[in-house]
């Protein structure tokens, strides 16, 4: 038995992703516009631009801490993720702190996530 059942299979190459438009795409075929359009047609969610401002070793062993500034408010948000966790970078596509691990675990081709990269994130749309 493999001990990899905890891995999120939605990042596995070939995983089928449903866009908010109903369209189905493979995870490796997604493009920036797919996320932007999905957020447009899905009520309540909006896309934020989240810029990586720092990448550090996490106090949690085997994790990295990513520091972002998020959205128009430039809010500071930090998250701890495993180094193979992919993020979608505007105009570039899937990127992770360890493209080698992402490729090994998910067969997903990635760029290396770097400070200055602008990732797609979501948040709740505020009602005006």
């Amino acid at each position: 038995a493999h001990s990899q059942s905890h891995l999120p299979s939605h990042f596995m190459k070939g995983a089928i992703i449903q866009l908010a438009t109903g369209e189905l795409k493979r995870v490796e075929d997604l493009q920036t516009q797919d996320f932007v359009r999905s957020a447009e047609v899905s009520g309540g969610l909006k896309i934020d631009s989240s810029t990586v401002v720092d990448i550090q070793e996490s106090p949690w062993q085997g994790f990295v801490t990513l520091h972002f500034v998020v959205g128009e408010q430039q809010s500071k948000v930090s998250i701890d993720v495993p180094p193979e966790h992919p993020f979608f970078v505007y105009g570039q596509g899937w990127s992770s702190c360890s493209p080698e691990r992402t490729n090994r675990l998910f067969s997903l081709s990635c760029h290396r996530l770097q400070v200055g990269d602008v990732c797609i994130s979501i948040s709740l749309q505020s009602l005006n």
């Binding site: 995983a15 992703i17 996320f35």
Partner: peptide, 25 residues
């Protein structure tokens, strides 16, 4: 009728992080 084979379909928003500011600066 053929029983449809179950294929996992994941929603687009499961792929991107939900980054909501926890507190205003």
């Amino acid at each position: 009728n053929v029983e449809p084979r179950s294929v996992a379909v994941f929603p687009w928003h499961s792929l991107v992080p939900f980054l909501a500011p926890s507190q205003p600066d």
